[in-house]
């Protein structure tokens, strides 16, 4: 694959790539550093920041404000809930389209994708009013359902591209071996589909966790996830760098780690299988 290059050349590549990589990563690194500083140290000159002492104070302050965990918990419920719900609906659909393709399958898939293209702001008013009239504004239920709906096309597509890679022969073999539909799904399809389902789950939790249109517009104190909670720092509180950094670090850390695990799936998931 990669051709042999001179050590000098490799050293140069390494240096350039690391410098650029660190520059891109720097803002994240910076908030992690600031989160371990006192408020006073956090607004000092960069050199002053680096040479000052370390402290966990900001984390304990953010932790003491119990509403942080309230919002963290909202984020968990919304992202996991909407994704799991979406999977329950999408797995049978994707299974059927991958293994029993009909003349309309392609059109149905394309149409499903097209619903994803609807700009959220285009339907903001009706959704807002529907939620209002049902008393669902600022509730987790409404937001879970909405996040499920906006990610459902992606979930179906990802599962479909994974399922399509499972050879149909194997399912037919199971049928010949006497497996009924239930057993075929349980013993053969699901075990083979688990990696695909897992990556779909991971990517969609990330997407739901970071969703910041509906979560900002349909929530207030009660059901606001971290996206909306962090946004409340936008005015005066934003000047408390250390606390903002600590809260931000805690908001992005779980997703950053999940994201690093799902790099590969990210590409095929977000390009709907067009790039693998």
């Amino acid at each position: 694959m990669a051709r042999a290059v001179t050590p000098r050349r490799k050293m140069l590549n390494t240096a350039v790539a690391w410098i650029i990589g660190l520059l891109i990563f720097f803002p994240i690194l910076w908030i992690v550093i600031l989160s371990f500083k006192t408020e006073g140290d956090a607004i000092r000159t960069p050199l002053g920041v680096l040479t000052s002492g370390w402290t966990f104070d900001s984390y304990s302050v953010v932790q003491e404000r119990s509403d942080y965990f309230h919002h963290f918990w909202n984020s968990v419920i919304l992202s996991v809930g909407s994704t799991v719900l979406g999977l329950v609906i999408a797995v049978p659909s994707a299974w059927a389209m991958a293994f029993v393709p009909g003349k309309q399958t392609k059109n149905v898939l394309m149409w499903m994708l097209s619903t994803k293209m609807l700009p959220p702001v285009g339907v903001l008013m009706p959704i807002y009013l529907i939620c209002q009239s049902l008393g669902l504004l600022d509730t987790r239920i409404a937001l879970t359902l909405i996040l499920m709906m906006i990610n459902l096309p992606i979930i179906i597509w990802m599962l479909y591209t994974y399922f399509r890679e499972i050879p149909g022969d194997i399912l037919e073999a199971a049928r010949m071996d006497g497996a009924a539909l239930k057993e075929e799904v349980l013993f053969v399809l699901l075990p083979m589909a688990v990696p695909g389902i897992a990556s779909t789950l991971l990517l969609n939790i990330i997407l739901a966790w970071n969703e910041a249109f509906w979560t900002l517009n349909l929530t207030a104190a009660n059901s606001a996830p971290l996206t909306a909670f962090i946004a409340s720092y936008s005015s005066p509180e934003g000047l408390f760098y250390a606390k903002l950094s600590a809260a931000s670090t805690m908001a992005i850390a779980p997703i950053l780690i999940m994201g690093w695990f799902s790099q590969k799936q990210l590409v095929r998931g977000l390009t709907f299988g067009a790039v693998k």
């Binding site: 650029i20 660190l22 891109i24 990563f25 803002p27 910041a212 962090i230 950094s245 690093w260």
Partner: peptide
């Protein structure tokens, strides 16, 4: 390192750039 910013929620990245 290069991929990391994609996983940062929009409100966090906006605030971090704005303030820091």
């Amino acid at each position: 390192m290069v991929i990391a910013p994609f996983f940062v929620m929009p409100t966090v990245s906006a605030l971090v750039w704005k303030n820091m």
